[in-house]
Design a protein around this nucleic acid. Structure first.
Lengths: 223, 223
DNA sequence: GGAATAGTGTCTGTGAGACACTATTAG
DNA sequence: CTAATAGTGTCTCACAGACACTATTCC
């Protein structure tokens, strides 16, 4: 312990790109209004790590505190570490490294927070967040969003909903296709998509009801 | 600056998996003998970051100081950040996060250090480092090596020598094939390999000389 | 010439992409 | 029946893998 004292230590923060797809909407990222610093700008939720805290824990606690998500909903979420942004002057408060994380959450888990908290969803255009009345995110967070979007698209390029954005079970291939189209901002041919994904899904044997046209098979993600 | 003081800060270190392929050898990782701690065990080179220092800078300085590489050789190297290992008890000296990095270096740049310094090359078996007389690396560094080897294999799976392990220019396809075979620990068919790589290379117009058999075309990496 | 290494022609199997076709529902 | 959506048959193209063939050197 002793000789460690000689070394100065940077402050370490986590910043989280929470990505979601609202109903009939494009891929979007969650922003919060920063209170003290940066004069109320929209930014990614984030906070400093606490004593002996793990990064992933800091991420989930941030979402509880700044976004108002319930601890139970977050329990099974596993944020992905993306990259450490270490430009020494990126934060004018001091020497701060930011460990950027990606977390994908179903829209339903965010809808309550969006009404009650100083929180918004910003559409992703290309790989950048578009916040109304604000050209860019503070602290170089545009780079974090870009990193997160690229990782997200890599994940969704060949595996059916790997981050669990739709229901665990009883979704149709069309719904899955819409989701991937929103995430990738590009449409697979529906028949190619079907043939590619079906071997990775489990057919529940059930059918959709109540819609127009032929009922669709309902699938669940394979374990 | 002021309100930052309230937050405790972890010590931040960098650990580097320096990967290379010795002549006719397998993919290998550079280990140094740790002096003070851990009783002289072989471990990855690493060190704490200094005030306002960037992680990549800490990596190159480590290689100067602990491996004796020349600053000029390192100037153009760009270490890749892999992952932050943040288990709070991974280092018994205190709360230390390790930012793991990958750096690929041509064997020639290491051969001098291997003779003069307390430094060795450990063969990669599967995705683990095999150090004689030592079952595992300290501080959970086996996980770092595994991370690095997987990333390295991903990089080398379809692009000709992306990290520049062979000469910039005037290498044959057979030499390139040997390199990829060592990194991947699996052999592409030579004709498939040729057809895949040639469009990504520049033919110098020169031919190899002095060997047995038909002279081979000499290539260089494309800009 | 023979041995050795470099490089190509070509067949086969697999899988994405395209598109037309069939299937099953509501109204 | 028509409209609408779900799902399949099948052709084409690209490309990896395999393997035999040709090409060019040293001895």
């Amino acid at each position: 312990m002793s000789d460690l004292e000689r070394f100065p230590a940077p402050h370490v923060a986590v910043d989280v790109a929470v990505l979601t797809v609202p109903p009939d909407g494009p891929l979007s990222v969650l922003l919060v209004r920063r209170s003290g610093d940066q004069g109320g700008m929209w930014a990614l939720p984030g906070r400093f790590v606490r004593e002996r805290e793990r990064l992933s824990h800091a991420v989930t606690v941030t979402l509880e505190e700044k976004v108002g998500l319930s601890p139970t909903a977050l329990r099974e979420m596993s944020p992905r570490q993306l990259h450490v942004f270490d430009e020494p002057d990126r934060d004018d408060r001091g020497w701060v490294m930011s460990a950027a994380h990606l977390l994908a959450l179903p829209f339903e888990q965010l809808s309550a927070a969006l009404e009650s908290e100083p929180v918004m969803l910003a559409r992703i255009d290309g790989a950048r967040a578009v916040a109304p009345g604000q050209r860019r995110l503070p602290y170089g967070q545009d780079a974090i969003v870009e990193f997160a979007v690229e990782e997200m698209r890599r994940l969704y390029s060949s595996t059916p909903d790997p981050e669990g954005l739709i229901a665990e079970s009883d979704f149709t291939l069309a719904q899955l296709h819409d989701l991937h189209t929103a995430v990738l901002d590009a449409a697979w041919q529906i028949d190619t998509f079907r043939r590619h994904m079906i071997p990775q899904l489990v057919d529940t044997g059930r059918r959709s009801e109540g819609g127009v046209g032929r009922p669709a098979a309902l699938y669940q993600r394979s374990a």
